[in-house]
Nucleic acid binder design. Structure first.
Lengths: 222, 222
DNA sequence: CATCAAGTGGAGATCGGATCTCCACTTACG
DNA sequence: CGTAAGTGGAGATCCGATCTCCACTTGATG
């Protein structure tokens, strides 16, 4: 799919010297456009799409980014930082269980809003090493949140850090199908899962988001 | 994508007269092959793939089935019947809660083993009316299982029948990513969700399937 | 067993969509 | 103002999927 970058014409990686002002402006526009397009339609869009959305010519896009992968890297570096931040914030929440819940909610929201992010972090789309590296940077914080919640006795003991992305993956599947009909539906199922994750519980937590009615359901399942 | 069937050469729907014996044999082979290929690789395979797998020429495939959709219908009619049967069996289980669990397990297993089935019933891939019709036939039985479990007081009251396919969709997402690494992993998350679905519970149900370790995880996320 | 309509295989025509280049033109910068 | 840097976008190239066509084989029938 991705061709090997040819030797001469446009290999991009090391910015050999500063770009001209207008060129740099276009580069930023491309990144911003890519961010939006990836979020909406996933990583499987053409550079032509991104270029059109940015209001520049295809040629310009290819001159700045040899292929989609370079663009993806440029776009997701900052997002990944933010995700790590969210997990770390969860650690500083005074209540360990609430911290865990907050982490699921905060990261879940990002995933709900950004299909590209789901694809990279949860579905392993695109360059495998990129995804792996990203998750590796995310793991320590997530592990800490889990461990702390378990020590507090509120989270069942048989949960491990790898369960977290799998759960987010499940919620992502819901979002994928319901986003046009009810973008927040995933919170319903998160609540359900959280009730399953509790070490002990008295009564079920009330579910946010009523279930899909028949009509919504039909539309969600296209 | 699917072209309008042309007037003369190979429109297939009404079997105008009985097929010659060898032709009928090939037809069956094609359906059997399609069943397998759809189960393994989903509905998005070419008729060429199916034909090769059946050991017949492409031409033969196209002579019998004007397009993939006809083949899909031929393949899934029987499977759908079986799914309905599973829900009905759940109703006859003496314990209403156990019946519900059995329904999730039995249908979940089918979904786990058959990607094409997931795509039709859970992901609304392919002809939208086919999926809708199929689900419509499945709904009454599922609704009854839910209602009975709720009346027994074991299933929380805020669950509705449309939650069932959404939950299966979540589990399907797990299966999709873990099938090469650990095909049964979905049962772990089903147990978690079931614990969340219980109206009241003392201690968590032990989870089947230990979580993915780091290596398995990396492979699952490709 | 001879005849011939029915059926077959699979090479390749056709289509469509994605990727990427090329170059005449425009623009920023010294 | 001169010129190196940058631009746009038409179209060359590639690729894979769909579907047809026809020389050849096979099953049914008398």
């Amino acid at each position: 799919m991705t061709r090997q970058a040819a030797s001469t014409p446009y290999p991009k990686s090391p910015p050999e010297r500063p770009l001209r002002a207008d060129a740099e402006r276009n580069r930023q526009r491309l990144i911003a456009a890519a961010q939006e397009v990836f979020a909406q339609r996933g990583l499987d869009v053409t550079l032509d799409d991104v270029a059109r959305h940015a209001g520049v010519g295809v040629g310009t896009a290819y001159r700045r980014f040899a292929n989609r992968d370079e663009l993806i890297d440029a776009v997701f570096e900052s997002t990944l930082q933010r995700m790590i931040g969210l997990a770390e914030q969860a650690l500083s929440h005074e209540d360990p269980w609430e911290g865990l819940v907050q982490m699921f909610l905060a990261t879940g929201r990002h995933f709900a809003d950004d299909r590209g992010l789901r694809e990279i972090l949860l579905e392993g789309t695109g360059a495998k090493d990129r995804s792996a590296a990203a998750r590796e940077r995310l793991t320590p914080a997530v592990g800490a949140v889990i461990a702390r919640a378990q020590e507090s006795g509120r989270l069942r003991d048989d949960i491990t850090p790898t369960d977290v992305p799998l759960i987010q993956l499940m919620l992502g599947a819901v979002t994928q199908h319901s986003r046009d009909v009810r973008p927040e539906l995933w919170t319903r199922y998160l609540t359900l899962v959280l009730d399953g994750l509790r070490h002990d519980r008295a009564r079920p937590t009330p579910l946010p988001q009523h279930a899909l009615d028949q009509d919504e359901f039909d539309r969600a399942m296209r």
